[in-house]
Structure formats: C-alpha cells, structure tokens
C-alpha cells in the first residue's frame, strides 16, 4: 500500500537533534550525510512510508517539520 503522508523539513533550521527519528513509528527519518549552513546533519525522510501521523512534528523543538496527509 502506498504511503499517504509526507513531511517537509526546513533543513536550514533543523539542528539534527534526532528526537524526531526516535518518535517516528515507521522509521522514516534519519540524519542526512550532508550538513546544513549551521553545520548540523539535518533530519530527512529516507523511505516512502510516512503515514502523516505528525509524531515527528510534535516532538520537534524547533518546529521545522510540516506534515501533510492525503485525505
């Protein structure tokens, strides 16, 4: 079954703390190998399994994650 959700991560504001990675029930997120302008390995979606539950956004201290879910 195709995934129904997706996340848009403001990678320049992400500090790479990783709490979203732990929070994701589908293990969609991981730290990128690249770093952003501040030198942080930012969080990114690595697999197409997002269900749009917004758990990652809930725990993100910097509010960098926007979540969408197909109706």
């Amino acid at each position: 079954m195709a995934a129904k959700g997706t996340v848009v991560i403001d990678k320049e504001r992400c500090k790479g703390c990783g709490v979203c990675i732990v929070a994701c029930p589908k293990s969609v997120l991981a730290l990128a190998k690249n770093v952003n302008g501040k030198g942080y390995n930012y969080s990114e979606a690595t697999i197409d399994e997002c269900i749009g539950c917004a758990s990652c956004a809930m725990v993100c201290p910097d509010g960098v994650i926007t979540v969408y879910k197909a109706k």
């Binding site: 995934a3 997706t6 504001r13 990783g18 749009g52 201290p61 910097d62 926007t66 879910k69 197909a70």
Partner: peptide, 29 residues
C-alpha cells in the same frame, strides 16, 4: 517523497504563527 500531497488541504501540522521566525538559541533537542 509524495510531493503531490503537499497541498494546503492536506496539511496536518505546521509551525504556528504565534512563534516568531527567529531561530531559537536552544541546544539541539
């Protein structure tokens, strides 16, 4: 992934406008 569902009607969660645009100085996490 799923760029096609990034539409206003599909929005589940976004940062509130009652926060300013300033990047918080707090440590990661």
């Amino acid at each position: 992934f799923n760029q096609d569902i990034v539409k206003p009607e599909n929005l589940v969660y976004k940062r509130t406008d009652v926060l300013t645009d300033n990047v918080m100085h707090y440590c990661p996490g």
